[in-house]
Design a protein around this nucleic acid. Structure first.
Length: 840
RNA sequence: GCCCGGGUGGCGGAAUCGGUAGACGCAGGGGACUCAAAAUCCCCCACCGGCAACGGCGUGCGGGUUCGAGUCCCGCCCCGGGCACCA
């Protein structure tokens, strides 16, 4: 059977050589002619498969893009072959700083640059053979798209979910724009790496914090990668704790009909002591509080500062105000100053000095804390520096009462309360509940839930984005642009470079921003900020099925039919922001009665990243893979299949030039098999057995995105198929072509035609697994003696233990280790026999 | 510091429930075909010892549980990513 070469085929018998470029050109044209990739939006059994749409960079398609798209395409093609009507749309996320900075760098207006990039990107994507229905492609930069982004803003505005506030914001001095907290990485701008500064500007925010609880709870219902869910949970950052009130000594608050001022207090003054409220998750440690700390921006700072301390407090606050947000957030030595005031610990009546320190953040909790240096690392550090005491209130046991000396004792699981009055002896969790209850009864505590999540700042003082649809009128205030006047078209600006002024370049175009008020008709001016790119991408999945509609953002019937998205694939770099914002927007529209569901993506999987030679691809390293080159050399089918083969899809892998040849050889062998088929006689039982094992394997691997192992299984089958000196039977090859189709669509179409079919292989269904054909009649059972493998025996499938023991003892190599009667025999059917002689 | 991943041959990686570690592919070695080369086809390929049969050893390190551990438990080390004064 190795004599395949005995009668070499004549020239005429040689199969037509596989020429990928010819095959791919042919089928890409034919798909267009036949409308193969056009989805019937009213089709039955809809399946919406989505991938994160790309930013169309000037450098063109990156292998990482293609890796992501291909994985999604395979999923879509597979679902189609299984009988679904599959919608696999494509689009471009082309607004934003990334595009604008590049335009600035090369000196080309983004209005020209972006369409050029999109054209190039589209060409590359088409070449890769994606099953995209281009009739529903979108670009966020089209007025027909961003009209609805603006509409979306108005929906939030209408519901009080969009508001303007002046706040400390992250300002990138290089990009000259405000950044969301999410876009600041280790204190630096995520785009350019410049250290971010603090500025106070009027900004538009979305009230995503109103949805924090739902965004967190709903995660339980989603079929998402656990790591993505964890990232979202951490970002939302729920903390359950308590708000505690500390009465400030000798400081009163006046209410009622009282008047305060020149003439002193009037007779009917109602005065109450000022309460300083703190948030804590460790109410159990209240007996260990030795001081309080307020943030420099805390509204009570002025009143807390005593005469003697006023100068020091003001100096400290001013210095803190000049610092950028980042410096404050980075770990560094603690600083602070005593206000001169004291507060009363509601638990034991002790007087606690009140400090101002910038390690307490105004944005979180109440902007004030009770410091328990014995049991909090930061408070410990602060207490050390300023010579404050660090008593112990939680010990390893009831006798462990001496103050921690080296570090705070932060263990909350095993500790026992000490030095805590009547709560001493209780466990931490128990004490926490009891102390909050006890203080609550006296009006000094209430249970509170806090989130780390901040409201979403959507203003950008930049050019390349959708103008925020608001008009400012001196008489009427901020007025939303009436929906009938949308879109507010982004005007073409020749000078779109941002400057230090803190206002958008759009503020230079007077003819654009000067308008009359939609309400009163008086002269007014437009908002000149544009919105965050993340807003563009927070709803694009809603737009796709309705991309051809000009009258609505998303058509109700189509949305009902297609959404939520069945499968969403994307990069983990968007695991937090994009997915969180999309979920938020979906919830808002759900609450507005426009969507029946509140979660947009039923299933999400993050794909891995591709590195090359063990390192991230980057221009500076010179290890960037240009897909065009490889498609040219090996064909899109080989390239796609190789990308899926180089590692587990959800982990990515290492790109090696040499290794593509193995995948190409595999496709060559499939090609040859299809051209050599025989229609005579019957398929070989052994081949059919392997075939059905592989059908089963591939059918299970594809939904799990285990593409690399599916390909390995198909390779194994081809090895079996071609191991015999015979022409393969048509029934051995047809299912193979179907299995290969999602990976290598062009070759599969060609071979399907060669095998005599007229319809697209993607409309030919999926091979049906026949368990009876896949069954092996004999199996190899490993035989161990005392747990060490000593050999194998070939036995009939499902053989009983006695038969296997007998077969094993018949093998001298095994029997020689059996030195006595087995004390115990472990038999795992069809797998393993273990004879235990010694031990036990 | 905290939270996620991950560590298996020369390389990329398999091993679904604790059951023959290294599937599949690349690279390498040998052979067939060829005037020759490419392509194709066949064989070998963790490491140590051995001509071989075979034996030993082996999944980052150290312990443990088990008849049996890449897989489970405890304690570490290293690499990649995310968060980072969030009370």
């Amino acid at each position: 059977m190795t004599d395949k070469t005995q009668s070499p085929p004549t020239e005429a018998e040689l199969p037509i050589a596989y020429d990928p470029s010819a095959v791919e050109r042919k089928w890409q044209e034919r798909w267009v002619e036949r409308g193969t990739n056009q989805v019937d939006l009213a089709g039955a059994d809809p399946y919406y498969t989505l991938m994160m749409f790309p930013y169309p960079s000037a450098e063109g398609l990156h292998v990482g893009n293609l890796f992501a798209f291909t994985g999604n395409d395979i999923h879509g093609r597979f679902q189609r072959m299984r009988g679904h009507t599959v919608f696999e749309p494509f689009g471009y996320d082309a607004f934003g700083i990334h595009s604008e900075n590049y335009a600035l760098k090369v000196g080309v207006n983004p209005n020209e640059l972006i369409p050029r990039n999109i054209a190039n990107f589209g060409r590359q994507v088409r070449r890769a053979g994606l099953m995209v229905d281009w009739r529903y492609a979108v670009s966020t930069t089209d007025a027909a798209y961003y009209k609805w982004t603006q509409w979306l803003f108005l929906q939030l505005f209408k519901r009080g979910l969009a508001y303007k506030k002046k706040g400390a914001v992250n300002w990138c001095p290089f990009d000259k724009t405000v950044l969301a907290n999410e876009q600041v990485i280790n204190g630096a701008c995520e785009r350019c790496g410049t250290m971010v500064e603090q500025r106070f500007l009027e900004q538009w925010f979305f009230r995503i914090t109103d949805y924090a609880g739902r965004l967190l709870e709903n995660l339980e219902t989603l079929d998402w990668s656990e790591s993505t869910k964890t990232a979202q949970r951490n970002w939302i950052g729920k903390s359950e704790g308590a708000e505690l009130s500390f009465r400030v000594q000798d400081l009163m608050e006046f209410a009622g009909s009282a008047t305060v001022g020149g003439g002193g207090l009037s007779g009917e003054v109602i005065s109450t002591p000022v309460e300083l409220r703190v948030f804590t998750t460790r109410a159990d440690t209240i007996f260990g509080a030795t001081f309080l700390v307020v943030a420099p921006e805390h509204p009570l700072v002025d009143r807390l500062a005593t005469e003697e301390q006023r100068a020091a407090v003001e100096a400290y606050r001013d210095a803190a105000g000049k610092q950028d947000i980042v410096t404050r957030k980075v770990n560094r030595e603690k600083t602070g100053v005593f206000t001169g005031s004291y507060a009363i610990n509601p638990a034991n009546g002790e007087l606690l000095p009140i400090w101002v320190a910038d390690y307490v953040l105004m944005e979180y909790g109440t902007g004030a804390i009770m410091a328990v240096p014995g049991h909090d690392e930061r408070d410990f550090e602060f207490a050390r520096k300023f010579g404050l005491s660090t008593p112990r209130v939680v010990g390893r046991d009831a006798h462990d009462t001496r103050p921690p000396t080296d570090a705070a004792f932060t263990d909350t699981t095993s500790g026992v309360m000490v030095n805590s009055g009547k709560f001493s002896g209780q466990g931490v969790a128990e004490a926490k509940r009891n102390i909050v209850d006890w203080l609550a009864r006296r009006g000094a505590a209430k249970p509170v839930v806090q989130y780390r999540l901040h409201d979403w700042c959507i203003s950008r003082q930049r050019y390349w984005g959708p103008p925020i649809p608001i008009i400012y009128c001196d008489a009427c205030g901020p007025v939303p642009v009436p929906e009938k006047d949308l879109p507010v078209v982004l005007p073409r600006l020749e000078n779109f470079r941002p400057d230090d002024s803190g206002v958008s370049p759009l503020a230079r175009d007077k003819s654009w921003f000067r308008v009359s008020c939609p309400t009163c008709g008086k002269p007014a001016r437009r908002e000149t900020d544009v919105s965050d790119t993340f807003l563009d991408s927070a709803w694009y999945f809603l737009r796709y099925p309705s991309a051809d509609r000009t009258d609505v953002a998303f058509d109700a019937a189509r949305t009902r039919h297609w959404l939520p998205v069945n499968s969403y694939i994307g990069g983990n770099e968007h695991a937090v922001l994009h997915l969180l914002y999309s979920r938020f927007i979906t919830m808002v529209l759900h609450d507005a009665g426009m969507l029946a569901f509140e979660e947009p993506f039923t299933r999400f999987r993050a794909h891995g990243t591709i590195v090359r030679d063990g390192a991230k691809m980057s221009k500076s390293r010179g290890n960037v893979v240009n897909p065009d080159e490889y498609v040219e050399k090996w064909g899109a089918d080989s390239f796609r299949t190789y990308l899926m083969f180089l590692g587990p899809y959800e982990e990515g892998g290492d790109f090696r030039d040499q290794s593509i040849s193995g995948v190409r050889r595999f496709l060559d062998r499939v090609w040859a098999s299809a051209h050599e088929v025989s229609r005579e006689g019957e398929p070989a039982a052994g081949v059919m057995r392997k075939l059905h094992q592989v059908i089963d394997k591939v059918t299970n691997d594809l939904p799990a995105l285990s593409y690399n192992t599916a390909i390995a299984a198909m390779m194994e089958y081809v090895n079996v198929l071609r191991a015999h000196e015979r022409r393969p039977h048509v029934r051995e090859v047809e299912p193979l072509v179907q299995l290969v189709a999602p990976f290598a669509p062009h070759v599969a179409e060609e071979l399907w035609e060669v095998l005599g079919h007229h319809e697209s292989v993607f409309d030919a269904g999926w091979p049906v697994f026949d368990a009876a054909l896949a069954v092996e009649e004999s199996v190899t059972v490993a035989v161990q003696v005392n747990g060490r493998t000593r050999g194998t025996v070939q036995v009939p499938k499902d053989a009983g233990q006695d038969a296997v023991v007998e077969a094993a003892m018949a093998e001298p190599v095994i029997a020689k280790f059996v030195t006595g009667a087995p004390k115990k025999v472990i038999y795992v059917k069809n797998r393993l026999l273990n004879l235990v002689i010694q031990g036990l």
